[in-house]
Amino acid sequence: MTLTYFLLFLAASAAAAATGIIFKPGEWYVGLKKPDFTPPNWVFPVAWTYLYVSVAYAAARIAPEAGSQIALALFAVQIALNTLWTPVFFGAHRLWLGLLVLICLWVAVAAMMLAFLQLDMLAGLLVFPYLVWLTLAGALNFRVWRDNPRAGAQT
């Protein structure tokens, strides 16, 4: 792993994180009915910071490995989908479409984790918390969509 690889993957992650600065939850989200298992608001930036840093580190570990092309392509797919979710959900208020993006993101991250595991065990294991977090996020997205049928466009 080189510092250059880590900083490049971290920059991609920072770009994804920037959508959270541009498209904040705001009053619309505050007014939605949310499930009891919704984490407190302070947990989200802490969790995402940890996940972005650890996945950037994992990607940097596998980048110099022979045969890492598919794994790195999967990193690109997941960071693109990650970047897309926030403007879809918080910006456009498209709860169902947000859930669809999240399902695609979960599949991409699961595939990325498997590809990373084949190249570097630690790198693959570093992705696992991301998959767990996305599972929780998917459950939250589903419940918010289901429990708030009039909260924005549903297509």
Rank of each mutant, 00 (worst) to 15 (best):
L131S: 13
L114H: 09
S54T: 14
G67Q: 06
S13L: 02
W106G: 01
L10S: 10
A115H: 06
F37I: 13
G124Y: 08
L7C: 13
T38Y: 11
G67W: 04
A60F: 11
F116N: 04
S68R: 10
V109S: 06
L117M: 11
I22A: 15
I21V: 15
F6N: 09
F89G: 03
T135G: 15
E27G: 13
A12H: 05
A47E: 03
R61A: 06
A14F: 12
F44A: 08
I103S: 01
A76T: 12
T19W: 02
P35Y: 08
F128Q: 09
V88H: 03
A80M: 13
A58H: 11
M113R: 13
T38Q: 15
Q69I: 04
V109K: 01
Y5P: 04
D120G: 05
P129K: 04
L8F: 14
E65V: 13
P40I: 12
G98S: 10
A66T: 14
T135W: 04
G124S: 08
A56M: 03
L84C: 13
A16K: 01
F23M: 10
W106M: 12
G20D: 07
W85E: 04
Y29L: 08
F23I: 08
T19E: 06
Y52R: 01
R94T: 05
T19R: 00
A71K: 06
Q78E: 06
E65C: 04
T135E: 06
P39D: 12
V109I: 15
V43M: 12
E27N: 14
W133Q: 03
W28A: 14
A80C: 14
L119W: 05
S68D: 09
V109D: 02
R61E: 04
G98D: 03
V127N: 08
Y29A: 05
P87H: 03
A17T: 13
A110N: 04
F44L: 01
L126C: 07
M112R: 11
D36S: 14
N82K: 01
Y130M: 03
R61D: 02
L114Q: 13
L74C: 13
L81K: 00
F116E: 03
D120E: 05
P35G: 12
V77E: 11
F9W: 07
G98H: 05
G91R: 02
T135C: 10
G20A: 07
I103W: 03
V43I: 09
L114M: 13
